[in-house]
Design a protein around this nucleic acid. Structure first.
Lengths: 217, 217
DNA sequence: AACCGCCATGCGCATTCTGCTGATCGAGGA
DNA sequence: TCCTCGATCAGCAGAATGCGCATGGCGGTT
């Protein structure tokens, strides 16, 4: 997943970004509203993690602008434990969920997955693909009883393709999904991971559309 | 994408239209409200670029009319850098986004992309053509249950014709659309691909206008 | 009616390009 | 330290493309 993390405190942002990247997500970090808007202009995110107290204003205004513009990306706001009124205002403004600070990393991860799943229109925790059983919430994958282990990049790619199941995703889109701005990528990384995934899942799991992209049928 | 550009200053409109066409979009230009309404009556656009200061009134009234009529096409308004109040009025009237003049071409392209992608995240992206079902976002095409596979050139041609549906595109325009400037092309490549497409889609899918070009009716 | 230009379509071939995969190297975590 | 993962390269195979050539149809013009 590609995540926009809007959080002004550098220490917290760093820790959170590192954690999320370790889970295989692509994280862009914006320390204030301005850079957040800039990032939103040029890229599409799967989820936004929004701290409300920012140096140049409240994250609420950003959220309202997003929703007014018809943007339905899942937004999770972060509030202090005692700011119940802010929390309600956030939900009113169109947030999907909230977490209380200090962040509980595992909780954030769980909520991210839940929202991504909802956004992709697949409420079920388990789905199937050929002989595979997919537990997207738990990020696990089985063939029969045996678990197939994916590395985080492999999972990220698989997840991206799954959330657009039946549609062709171009290499460029996949790249943008897997990598944030800063860690620019070159070469045929996507191809390589497709190849590795096929090695683990079976060649038929991912189809190639020459010149167009890849899809999971 | 098919874009309606509403802008009265001829120089600016020309430059913008040229730029957008070079990006592979179909651009219709309207210099005033009257012709804009006329264009909107006869065609469906994917995006509208709207300058607010027009000779025969403010673009805001057009925008309001559109929204009142239930039209949800993405509208990007252009405002001068200091007209913050206008900007807000525009967003209130139902605009999706704004850009400040003078235009920054790269920024416009980025916003167009963002809106296009957002729209393509919408599952209701299917359209129909005769007995064909077209998933433009997913780059797939069906006749009934069976998928019709197009190669990337075929798809590019089809997509170009679709985005100007109902209008005739000359061979030259199509050539420019299919091929980057660098690899100039000669011969009857467009004719050949039209022929191949007809083979896959059915002969009636693409009409010939002798001496003028092709269109999808 | 005859002509001429434009277009359609088929076949075949050479070339280009895309995608696949095994291998290697370095970095960072366990 | 060792080991896993990620990034990148290079070579190969096969698909897609471009294009020549040829035939035949259609339309408008003279």
């Amino acid at each position: 997943m590609r995540i926009l993390l809007i959080e002004d405190e550098a220490d917290i942002a760093d820790a959170l970004a590192r954690f999320l990247r370790a889970q295989g997500h692509a994280v862009d970090h914006a320390p204030d509203l301005d850079s957040a808007r800039a990032a939103l202009d040029v890229a599409v995110f799967d989820t936004i993690l929004l701290d409300l107290a920012l140096p140049d204003g409240s994250g609420l205004s950003l959220l309202r602008d997003l929703r007014r513009g018809g943007n339905r990306v899942p937004v999770i706001i972060a509030t202090a434990r005692d700011q119940i009124s802010e929390r309600i205002a956030g939900l009113d403004a169109g947030a999907d969920d909230y977490v209380v600070k200090p962040y509980d990393l595992a909780e954030i991860e769980a909520r991210l997955r839940a929202h991504a799943r909802r956004a992709s229109g697949d409420p079920a925790t388990e789905s199937h693909l050929g002989g595979l059983r997919i537990d997207r919430a738990g990020a696990r994958l089985y063939r029969g009883e045996a678990e197939i282990r994916l590395t985080s990049r492999e999972w990220a790619l698989f997840d991206a393709l799954l959330s657009a199941r039946g549609r062709v995703l171009s290499k460029q889109v996949l790249e943008e999904r897997l990598y944030a701005f800063d860690d620019a990528i070159e070469g045929n990384a996507v191809e390589v991971y497709v190849s590795r995934l096929r090695g683990k899942l079976g060649a038929e799991a991912i189809q190639t559309r020459r010149g167009l992209g890849y899809l999971i049928p």
